[in-house]
Write a protein that binds this DNA or RNA. Structure first.
Lengths: 203, 203
DNA sequence: ATTTAGTTTAACCATTTGGTTAACAAAAGT
DNA sequence: ACTTTTGTTAACCAAATGGTTAAACTAAAT
């Protein structure tokens, strides 16, 4: 396929692998297809990455490293809960529109192999709820927001932002809309979702 | 595996196939494993279902047929929006706790092959938003709920209810909780999610 | 009792797939 | 100049995999 200045072979392999793995998953991906897309011989894949498993892990870690900082924004910055939610929602949806396969890929592969997340958890920078919890409880005490468990609020924020990009075909079918209308709906959500959440918790 | 009165072979195959396909997906599933779990010879799979693809489709249609009526409850019954949301949320989460693999399976396979949903769309009983849209707009006119696009509200309801069961490993890792705590969190959501939605749209 | 239709099995087959090997080319050290 | 290291290829391999076949078994129908 297009080899738009992939510089070195190692990188063009990773790019091709990203493509194939993210659209077909570990089980559906074929080493031959990755090699073809990278424009090289299949043996090169093993020369640079030893095995399908290791190549996959390189792709997965890359993908996760892209997603994690986005989540940390909600959890670890110092603005108010309301500002956080507005910022995060707008940024996150913009981000995902650029990487539409990402969330479904990560979720699918973690379901296939849940123990894989244990490795990721050890990295520093792995999202952690502690600070967010304290902040939520503080704002509840200060009567800034209605009582809610921080975990539930966090799940709700994730769900409202991520779900449509994971269940795209389902939503398109139920709402009976085409690709263009779906994209518009997602753009609208940048504001709608934040309003929806804040409406619910604001006193 | 356990062959607890599976009656006929055809059914025990379908059961085994359900197990394997729903936990490993189409690409990860192996005919041999299905045969072993059903306690029969691999040739029987082809005798009764001709091919992996057809066996898979039988499982998938079964799964979808289980999910669709649940969604139609929100869309086509005659109670108020508020009652619908409360009923649906409580029922749906109970339902999914009994079939935890279902939503991830359906979403994963539709992402793998989005055109597959076209076949399903032709079935009557396929969820449709028209009635729900009218009702939402009516209740907005009557000042019973705040203005919101019906599609967005529907997406939000789906997201808040379904997402945690699709992204279970992710949520468990972020919230740093074990299986027991996660299950409790999900039970709590039966009420919390409905409150969250209604808080947001109620005037 | 014998035919017939449906069910089940073991052995087999062709293809696909991840991975390896050996030869070769091109840089990089010396 | 030559030796070593790195990058690349084509051909090959063993295992796995979906699928087929022909024969055997079973039970009801004739």
């Amino acid at each position: 396929m297009a080899k738009t200045k992939d510089e070195n072979t190692e990188n063009s392999i990773l790019n091709a692998a990203k493509n194939v793995f993210q659209s077909k998953g570990m089980d559906g991906a074929r080493m031959q297809e990755i090699a073809d897309k990278a424009g090289i011989n299949k043996a090169m894949l093993h020369y640079y990455y030893r095995s399908k498993q290791l190549l996959f892990e390189a792709v997965f870690k890359n993908a996760f490293a892209l997603l994690a900082p986005q989540l940390n924004k909600v959890l670890n910055d110092d603005s108010s809960i309301e500002d956080k939610i507005r910022n995060f929602t707008s940024n996150y949806i913009s981000f995902i529109i650029k990487h539409p396969y990402l969330p479904a890929f990560i979720i699918q592969e973690l379901n296939r192999n849940p123990s894989f997340i244990l490795k990721l958890k050890q990295n520093k920078g792995f999202p952690n709820l502690e600070k967010f919890k304290k902040q939520v409880n503080l704002e509840i005490e200060q009567k800034l927001i209605k009582p809610i468990h921080a975990e539930q609020l966090f799940i709700n924020i994730m769900a409202l932002n991520i779900f449509p990009f994971v269940a795209t075909p389902l939503i398109k079918a139920f709402a009976n809309i085409n690709d263009k209308a779906f994209k518009q709906l997602m753009k609208d959500r940048k504001e709608e979702v934040a309003d929806f959440i804040i409406n619910s918790i604001k006193i």
